[in-house]
C-alpha cells in the first residue's frame, strides 16, 4: 500500500470543506421568500413572487386574473364593473394587498414559511 502524499490530505480537507459549504447552501433555500396568498370562493391559492405566472380565479361576478411578474403581484383583469382592483396596480411588500371586492378575490403578500431574514418593510404601512 502506497503512503498517502501531501496533496491527498489537502484534497481530502478541501472536499470536507465543500461538503460543509453544501450543508449551508442547502439550508439557505427558500429563506425569507415572499409569496402572494390569494383567497377566492373559499379556496386558497399560493403564488411565490419569485416565479412569474398567472392564475384565473372564479368568483360570483366572473373571472379575475392574477399575475406575478418581476417580483410583483397584480390583478391584470377582472369581470367587475369598476376595475378598481386593476387600477390598484402591483404590490410586492409583506402585508400589502390588492383585492377585487365585487368578485371576492383577495390577494395578500406574506413572508414565506421560514419568515427568517425578512424584515417587515416599514414602507408598507
Amino acid at each position: 500500500m502506497h503512503r498517502l502524499r501531501i496533496l491527498d490530505y489537502i484534497i481530502f480537507l478541501l472536499s470536507l470543506a465543500v461538503v460543509t459549504a453544501s450543508v449551508f447552501w442547502s439550508a439557505s433555500s427558500g429563506e425569507g421568500e415572499l409569496i402572494a396568498e390569494i383567497e377566492a370562493s373559499g379556496e386558497v391559492y399560493i403564488m411565490p413572487l419569485s416565479r412569474d405566472g398567472s392564475l384565473v380565479l372564479k368568483g360570483p361576478v366572473g373571472d379575475t386574473r392574477v399575475d406575478v411578474a418581476d417580483g410583483e403581484v397584480f390583478i391584470s383583469d377582472s369581470d367587475c364593473r369598476d376595475k378598481i382592483c386593476v387600477a390598484m396596480g402591483p404590490v410586492s411588500t409583506p402585508s400589502s394587498w390588492v383585492a377585487c371586492l365585487p368578485n371576492r378575490v383577495f390577494v395578500r403578500v406574506v413572508a414565506g414559511n421560514s419568515g427568517k431574514g425578512t424584515e417587515v418593510d416599514a414602507g408598507a404601512f
Binding site: 427558500g30 379556496e43 386558497v44 391559492y45 399560493i46 403564488m47 411565490p48 416565479r51
Partner: peptide, 20 residues
C-alpha cells in the same frame, strides 16, 4: 411540492400540497 404554486389542496402542518 416543497415550492407551492396554485390552489391549496391539502395542508399537512407546514407541508402544503398545491395543485400547480
Amino acid at each position: 411540492l416543497l415550492s407551492p404554486w396554485g390552489r391549496v389542496l391539502v395542508e399537512i402542518g407546514p407541508f402544503i400540497i398545491t395543485s400547480g
